[in-house]
Design a protein around this nucleic acid. Structure first.
Length: 586
DNA sequence: AGATGCCAACCACGCAATTT
DNA sequence: AAATTGCGTGGTTGGCATCT
């Protein structure tokens, strides 16, 4: 028995793609230049302003249309009206999330700002459409122009998880003699685009069934491998593998049980020395290596970003940052296929046939996919319209996206491993392209000198974001950093937005539209910080610092143990977390 | 020789008119 | 009322010209 670490699957099976040999052209929507037409408006809690007229919200006479408002707050005021009159409310700050000066002031002021922003966009030649869609399509078009075709084997790459490495290793670090360094990679994903990728046109399935003897044995491609006996203690503890089960998604400390996983050639090369044996079952290999089609684009965008920063043009600098993030994600856009079925049990059959799920689990996955937005359905007079995520879509080049993620994880992991060899260094927090670590204060200069080759302004180098003396990391995207008792940086996702910067919010209300069988209704929810926290790791408590420890590999495989452990663990952890919140929020 | 831009034929799909 | 057919639209596809 081996521990399967991949997207949730009963088994990893590349074999079923063995006779996928056709090539198809990649599709791309060349975005037309015509702007979407909306009504521009603004609102406060009672009234609505558009066309120089103010009407009470309950009396707005607009139906089946689109209204563009500046802020989410206004959209919230118009929520009831929008459902009643079938009006879609578009929010400027969501469509163009690169302005740093948008906030709710008043109805009249907001309307003015909205007009000014629209004029600004026109001046900069930015189309009045959701910015991420516009540039995703543009970049995908560029990819298509360069490589034109892909093998339909490309769809096998959907089995590779696209999630990044995110984890908290320390809850609290307030030791007097220590300093916390917060490092960020400059554009992590774009920075790996200059490495060697492979042309999605020339993919081939290959049965291997051989162990890897040397680095030369590893062909370019995605490999289904079994890893035996980890020899590297750092990797045992800090690996980025995740065990994903129906109910579990968790990192773990590697023990002796073999691990079954999908890895790119880059990853196997990186971990080759860490394991006693690596056995390849089968692979999807490629015959031609290329640079990433958007490599040049990445470099020029990065240089643009630097020069905007130098000019102190914050808006355009953050627009360029947004564009940079779209470079790798444009090849994994979500495309849906619409199908019609007579009744609900046919939807389950669709899930079974589209996602290779055993029939007996279709009920579970129906719920799971609805929650994740992979499948949506609407009742109509004939039955159901089903929108199902199309993993075979010619709008995707999944092999490129997956490869970018894989290379980034290797790069991050390499950096972490090299840091770990530094004396008394502890990793506190890792989030995709960001590392927080703690070292002894006396060692700072030595550290900066030792790693000066990876620290700098260039694409892919590390930037020092903050230097702190105390830190609390309650969860991914939830941390507070202090320098001599002054808060210098914090993040608290959901509770804070860029425009709502109270660092100490524990409660929040939000409204949710629930769509059910054609009905729409609004429900209000309260969320509480303490209940949002993921407390799945073990706590090792010391006076002025608290470590978080991973579960062992064995605990995960036995469901009974896992559940028991999880419950006792939660019970143990709860008071500590509660105490910490009080400590931070006092 | 490959990358890129552009064009026109082609095809699928949705809507509406027409038939059963 | 349901099914079939026709039509228009817009996106897909393959080819060709031009550029580097």
């Amino acid at each position: 028995m081996s521990l399967i670490c991949s997207k949730y699957l009963p088994e990893i099976n590349l074999g079923k793609f063995s006779n996928y040999s056709k090539v198809e052209r990649i599709f791309s929507n060349k975005s037309n230049e015509i702007d979407d037409v909306y009504i521009w408006g603004a609102a406060n809690s009672t009234h609505f302003l558009c066309n120089e007229k103010i009407t009470s919200i309950s009396e707005i006479a607009i139906h089946n249309n689109k209204i563009l408002v500046l802020t989410n707050k206004e959209a919230n005021y118009l929520l009831n009206f929008s459902i009643k009159n079938n009006v879609e409310i578009l929010v400027f700050e969501n469509l163009f999330p690169f302005f740093n000066d948008i906030k709710y002031v008043s109805m009249e002021k907001n309307f003015d700002i909205l007009l000014k922003k629209i004029i600004y966009l026109k001046k900069k030649n930015i189309p009045l459409k959701k910015i991420s869609t516009v540039y995703s399509n543009l970049y995908l078009h560029k990819v298509e122009r360069k490589i034109r075709n892909k093998s339909i084997l490309d769809q096998a790459f959907r089995l590779y998880p696209l999630s990044g490495y995110q984890e908290v290793f320390k809850l609290k670090e307030t030791r007097k003699n220590r300093t916390i360094l917060c490092l960020d990679f400059n554009s992590m994903y774009p920075s790996v685009l200059d490495q060697s990728f492979f042309d999605p046109k020339y993919l081939e399935y290959k049965k291997v069934n051989k162990k890897v003897n040397s680095l030369d044995d590893i062909e370019n491609g995605l490999h289904h491998v079994i890893l035996y006996k980890c020899k590297n203690d750092y990797f045992k503890e800090y690996n980025y593998f995740q065990y994903i089960n129906k109910k579990i998604k968790q990192s773990y400390t590697i023990e002796d049980e073999p691990i079954e996983i999908l890895l790119f050639n880059d990853e196997i090369k990186f971990i080759f020395d860490f394991f006693e044996e690596i056995f390849i079952i089968d692979s999807i290999i490629s015959h031609k290596s290329i640079k990433h089609p958007l490599c040049k684009e990445a470099n020029s965008l990065y240089n643009q970003r630097l020069s905007f920063k130098k000019d102190n043009n914050i808006t355009l600098a953050s627009l360029t940052k947004l564009k940079l993030t779209l470079l790798h994600s444009c090849t994994n856009q979500k495309k849906f296929k619409r199908l019609n079925v007579k009744d609900k049990c046919h939807i389950q059959q669709l899930i079974v046939s589209h996602y290779d799920i055993p029939i007996e689990e279709s009920e579970f996955f129906m719920e799971y996919f609805v929650k994740k937005g992979i499948i949506k359905f609407k009742k109509n007079n004939k039955g159901y319209d089903v929108d199902i995520l199309d993993t075979t879509s010619a709008y995707n080049v999944l092999s490129l996206s997956a490869h970018v993620i894989a290379k980034s994880k290797v790069k991050l992991m390499e950096t972490i491993m090299s840091f770990l060899s530094f004396q008394n260094l502890e990793i506190c927090y890792v989030n995709i392209d960001c590392i927080h670590l703690s070292i002894e204060s006396n060692d700072i200069d030595f550290f900066l000198n030792k790693f000066k080759h990876v620290i700098g302004d260039k694409l892919g180098q590390l930037k020092i974001e903050n230097i702190a003396t105390q830190g609390y990391w309650l969860d991914i995207g939830r941390y507070w950093l202090y320098s001599n008792n002054n808060l210098i940086e914090h993040k608290n996702i959901l509770f804070n937005t860029p425009y709502l910067l109270d660092p100490y919010r524990k409660f929040r209300k939000f409204r949710k539209i629930t769509k059910f069988e054609g009905f729409h209704y609004i429900s209000e929810h309260n969320i509480n910080l303490l209940n949002c926290l993921n407390m799945k790791k073990k706590i090792i408590k010391m006076d002025d610092h608290i470590k978080l420890c991973r579960f062992n590999q064995k605990t995960l495989t036995s469901i009974v143990n896992y559940k028991e452990n999880l419950i006792t663990n939660l019970k143990n952890n709860y008071p500590t977390y509660k105490g910490l919140i009080d400590e931070i929020f006092d």
